[in-house]
Amino acid sequence: MVPMARRNLVDSPFLDAACPQMGRTPSHTPVWFMRQAGRSLPEYRKAREGISMLDSCFMPELLAEITLQPVRRHKVDAAILFSDIVVPLKAAGVKVEIVPGRGPVMDAAIRTKEDVLNLPILDHDVPEVAQGISHILEELNDRTALIGFAGAPFTLASYLVEGGPSKNHQRTKAMMHGEPELWHTLMERLTPTIVGFLKVQINAGIDALQLFDSWAGFLTEHDYRNYVLPHSKHIFQEVEAAGIPRIHFGVGTGELLGAMSEAGSEVMGVDWRVPLDRAAERITRAAGPRVLQGNLDPAILFAGPQVVREEVTRIKDEAAAAQLAGTARGHIFNLGHGVLPDTPAEAITEAVAIIHGEA
Rank of each mutant, 00 (worst) to 15 (best):
R189Q: 01
M260F: 09
E128Q: 14
G178D: 06
A17C: 14
H248D: 10
Q69N: 08
L81T: 03
E262P: 03
L137W: 02
H331P: 00
F218R: 07
H177K: 13
I66G: 08
P30F: 00
K95G: 05
R39H: 15
N141A: 03
D271R: 03
A109E: 13
A208G: 12
S232Q: 14
F154T: 01
M1A: 10
R48G: 09
S265F: 06
S232A: 15
E138A: 05
L292Q: 03
I247Q: 02
Q21I: 02
R111D: 14
L160S: 08
P245V: 12
E49G: 15
V105T: 09
S27K: 09
V352W: 03
V2H: 11
S27W: 00
R285P: 11
P104D: 09
I354L: 03
A174C: 06
L156P: 03
I300M: 14
G294I: 01
I98V: 15
D271S: 01
G330I: 07
K167S: 12
R72Q: 11
F58W: 13
A79V: 02
D123W: 02
V228E: 08
A37W: 01
G164H: 06
A174M: 08
I206P: 14
Q293P: 15
M187Y: 10
G330Y: 07
V339P: 06
T193A: 07
A91S: 07
T191F: 14
R329G: 04
V200A: 00
V307H: 11
N8P: 05
R314D: 06
A216S: 12
L276G: 08
D297F: 12
V228H: 09
S158N: 10
E97R: 15
P13L: 04
T67D: 09
V105C: 04
E188F: 01
R282Y: 10
V94Y: 04
V99L: 11
I235P: 13
P26F: 00
F149S: 07
E255V: 09
L186D: 07
A241F: 13
M1E: 12
A79T: 03
G330C: 08
H356R: 04
R24L: 08
H28C: 07
L292G: 01
S52Q: 05
P289K: 15
A157C: 07
A259T: 03
A150G: 03
R285N: 15
I133Q: 13
V116L: 15
A241Y: 14
R290F: 00
W183P: 06
S232P: 04
I354M: 01
C19H: 03
V87R: 11
R102A: 13
M22W: 02
V251W: 04
V200C: 05
Y224H: 10
A109G: 14
L9V: 05
S56W: 12
D277I: 01
D16K: 14
A157K: 05
